[in-house]
């Protein structure tokens, strides 16, 4: 039996606009998606902001009712059997909210463990274990309002594990964390996967999905545009080469010229202090370099490198193709 089965799931939000002349507007957040997750699998849901990742997770955690379609978690329907799903799932939504800031970490965990029906004798052992697991053993008695964002995020993970759930939903668990904090969270997720928990992880950090997930679904505008293993997704862009160039103050006009080159697939730019990293996808690799350099004539160019595509490159292509 699959741990999670999603069939033609769709969710439309209806909003009203105006005061006197009220009109309604429909926003399709999730548009007919289907996928399955096996028991013990770590499955990634990748997509840009507003792609429908959080909406999907909220439906699967019974917090949102789908407009149409069905989904089952451990064989239970997310609408009809919500009360059977809730005791066996744990979830965290990215961000700092969702905890009682005026209480200590131990008090928060004590409160939630009673609400999760964890026996007091069990929670007495489990709370110190979880605090150690997430690296908060020495700060458990402090009020949460003094915690950093990363500490709150780690406490969220401890809270989600209080009742030892079979299925975990992690919505952007490393969002806004510093590199060290994010690495610690990834290690915790990896440890949980080793315990054979089924995990649905959403992220827009490609390396995170690449390092952790067995399979990845790329979602954009509410649609699943690709579903494969990270290796499989990378194979989809095997024909591509990525040319990386360090440039200084590149004007928009030049970017437009680069995009118009027939051998260039995509152009993206990333600011890095005073310089910018120009990433150009091309099926012709270094052969396209002469045309590119012609466009950049007169501009200061630093390091130039041609490399194999990563999962991020596959993602950029998939997302771009569905725009």
């Amino acid at each position: 039996m699959n741990a999670i089965e999603v069939e033609h799931l769709r969710r439309i939000y209806v909003t009203t606009i105006g005061v006197i002349r009220r009109s309604t507007k429909e926003i399709v957040a999730v548009d007919d998606i289907s996928f399955q997750i096996s028991q013990g699998e770590l499955f990634g849901l990748l997509g840009p902001n507003g792609a429908g990742k959080t909406t999907t997770i909220k439906m699967l955690t019974t917090l949102l009712i789908p407009t149409s379609g069905t989904a089952r978690v451990l064989g239970n329907d997310i609408v009809r059997d919500a009360k059977h799903i809730r005791p066996v799932i744990g979830f965290i939504f990215g961000g700092e909210r969702g905890l009682y800031w005026r209480l200590s970490a131990i008090d928060n965990l004590r409160y939630f463990s009673s609400l999760y029906h964890v026996e007091p004798e069990v929670s007495k052992k489990r709370i110190p274990y979880l605090l150690e697991l997430v690296g908060l053993k020495d700060r458990g008695n402090e009020k949460i309002e003094g915690y950093s964002r990363g500490m709150k995020q780690r406490l969220h993970i401890a809270r989600a594990l209080l009742h030892d759930p079979k299925v975990l939903f992690l919505d952007e668990p490393t969002l806004g964390l510093d590199p060290v904090g994010a690495r610690e969270i990834r290690q915790t997720i990896s440890d949980l996967q080793a315990e054979k928990k089924t995990i649905l992880l959403t992220t827009h950090y490609m390396f995170e999905a690449d390092a952790l997930c067995q399979r990845v679904a790329v979602i954009n505008h509410g649609l699943i545009v690709a579903l494969d293993s990270p290796e499989g997704l990378k194979k989809q862009v095997k024909d591509l080469s990525v040319i990386e160039l360090e440039v200084f103050g590149i004007p928009q006009r030049v970017l437009g010229q680069l995009r118009s080159i027939s051998s260039v697939d995509a152009v993206s730019i990333e600011n890095r202090d005073q310089k910018q990293l120009l990433q150009i996808h091309s099926p012709h690799g270094s052969e396209a370099l002469s045309e590119i350099m012609t466009c950049l004539k007169g501009l200061r160019v630093g390091k130039v490198a041609v490399r194999e595509p990563t999962l991020e490159d596959a993602y950029v292509r998939l997302v771009r193709d569905t725009k």
Partner: peptide, 18 residues
């Protein structure tokens, strides 16, 4: 406002009891 309502609703405990 605290962001805890979603957590409370997603618990096995009925909300009126809390």
């Amino acid at each position: 406002r605290r962001g805890t309502l979603e957590t409370l609703v997603c618990l096995p405990t009925p909300l009126p009891l809390i």
